[in-house]
């Protein structure tokens, strides 16, 4: 199964244009997924509309969501909502597979904070295939956090598509820790003038985990802005692909795009492949990207250990420090602490 293609291809030999999952078949006959909690500060329906994703992970997975999703959630943000809207999916032995179709629409001038969590109980293989669509009408402002805390045996597939209208803003925070394979496609269409998309992503890989992150931002509106900030750490045999595309379409005058990716390698068998693309068809724009990879600075490590921390503790401290800037964006102390607890647990 070929998944998660980049919008522009590069040499096939570079092994980054797409991924191929062998010896994996997507499950059919999906039973109900009942173990989900949704906060009561919002009313939801199951009336999601039809769609065709511009990119997404690929037809097979997209069609599965269209034809056999076992959870449909439609949210209309029609007033400002101060408390976070929480959607909490808990996988367990009776809820093994989740195929969800989430559609969120933020009305003009409205603000909300949305948290979507994926957690598990028993340490067995789960399957998740989801599509989240978000449309922000003019002047709306949405914070959305996707927290993947699945285990290292599961399959995690997620496609996200955002359409940003004039003066709207999406603050997106992605915490990607779980999955034997965790494959994410993130697409933002910044069609409105002054639209603004901040993307903060952290990932943490151990054992044989594999992450494939594909971020695509297309800027159409004038003075639109996208920032992609990705921080990750890999230990054991973990491997990640980072693919980031910022595409300045003609007409996106005075727009800005930044892409910043850093991968901390914590073992000599971890692997990091990155393809941060800047595509530019407009003169009056500013685009920057930077990417870097390497191990923890020994001087830093020595300094921390000289203060009485052992190696493992010092490493945890450094990883958390790296992630902290991004975690600040969660704007939710409880959730932040939960994630820090997970980092400590997973780095043990």
């Amino acid at each position: 199964m070929i998944l998660n293609e980049t919008p522009v291809r590069t040499s096939k030999n570079f092994n980054i244009n797409n991924i191929e999952l062998t010896d994996f078949n997507i499950p059919t006959n999906i039973p109900k997924f009942n173990n989900v909690t949704i906060s009561d500060n919002i009313s939801i329906t199951e009336n999601t509309t039809n769609f065709k994703l511009k990119y997404g992970l690929g037809d097979i997975l997209e069609n599965q969501v269209k034809s056999s999703s076992n959870k449909k959630i439609k949210i209309n943000i029609e007033k400002n909502i101060a408390e976070p809207i929480l959607i909490d999916f808990n996988f367990n032995k009776d809820n093994l597979s989740l195929i969800e179709d989430i559609e969120i629409c933020a009305s003009e001038n409205k603000k909300a904070n949305i948290i979507i969590k994926y957690r598990y109980k028993e340490d067995i293989e789960y399957y998740h295939n989801g599509i989240i669509r978000l449309n922000t009408k003019p002047n709306s402002n949405i914070n959305i956090s996707i927290i993947n805390l699945l285990n290292e045996q599961s399959y995690n597939f997620l496609s996200i598509e955002n359409i940003l209208e004039e003066n709207s803003k999406i603050n997106y925070c992605n915490v990607d820790f779980g999955g034997k394979n965790s494959i994410t496609n993130y697409y933002s269409n910044l069609k409105g003038n002054n639209s603004n998309n901040q993307i903060n992503c952290i990932y943490l890989g151990k054992q044989n985990q594999f992450f494939d992150l594909n971020f695509i931002g297309e800027l159409y509106g004038e003075k639109s802005n996208i920032d992609i900030e990705v921080q990750g750490a890999l230990k054991d045999n973990a491997k990640k692909h980072f693919k980031g595309t910022i595409d300045f379409k003609k007409g996106s005058k005075k727009s800005k795009g930044n892409e910043n990716e850093f991968c901390m390698l914590m073992s000599d068998t971890s692997k990091s492949i990155a393809l941060p693309m800047l595509l530019c068809g407009e003169e009056d724009v500013e685009g920057n990207h930077s990417s870097a990879a390497g191990k923890v600075d020994n001087k830093q490590l020595f300094y921390i250990m000289s203060r009485g921390f052992n190696y493992k503790e010092a490493m945890k401290l450094i990883v958390k420090a790296r992630f902290n800037n991004i975690l600040e964006n969660l704007r939710d102390e409880k959730l932040k602490n939960e994630i820090i607890y997970e980092i400590d647990k997973r780095l043990d």
């Binding site: 595509l279 530019c280 724009v285 990207h289």
Partner: peptide, 29 residues
């Protein structure tokens, strides 16, 4: 000008931790 195109498509493939790798790119007028 605004009828031209400029793309940057760099791949990095890092298979060891004992490395200092950095990449920077800028596009503008």
């Amino acid at each position: 000008d605004d009828i031209s195109k400029s793309d940057t498509i760099p791949t990095s493939d890092i298979r060891t931790d004992e490395v200092e790798f950095s990449h920077e790119a800028k596009i503008g007028k």
